[in-house]
Amino acid sequence: MARAVGGPLVDDLSRRIAELEAEVQESRQLNVRVAELVDLVQELMLPLASQDRERIEAALAKFERSL
């Protein structure tokens, strides 16, 4: 019924809603990504900046055990 009356306008709005929904999900997906990067920096930045292989390996092993 709506399609018969609205025709191309309804099609256009349906398409734009689908696009908007996809865009909202894209934005939401940043949450895990940001949290992961902050966690990684917080836990690994200092040990990795050192040139001490043993320290780096120990920090990586400890970090990966927590994933």
Partner: peptide, 17 residues
């Protein structure tokens, strides 16, 4: 080793290693 390519923490840590 375990690496999850859908987790930044996982693949970045392995990439660093």
């Amino acid at each position: 080793g375990s690496v999850n390519l859908h987790s930044y923490r996982s693949w970045l840590a392995e990439g660093s290693r």
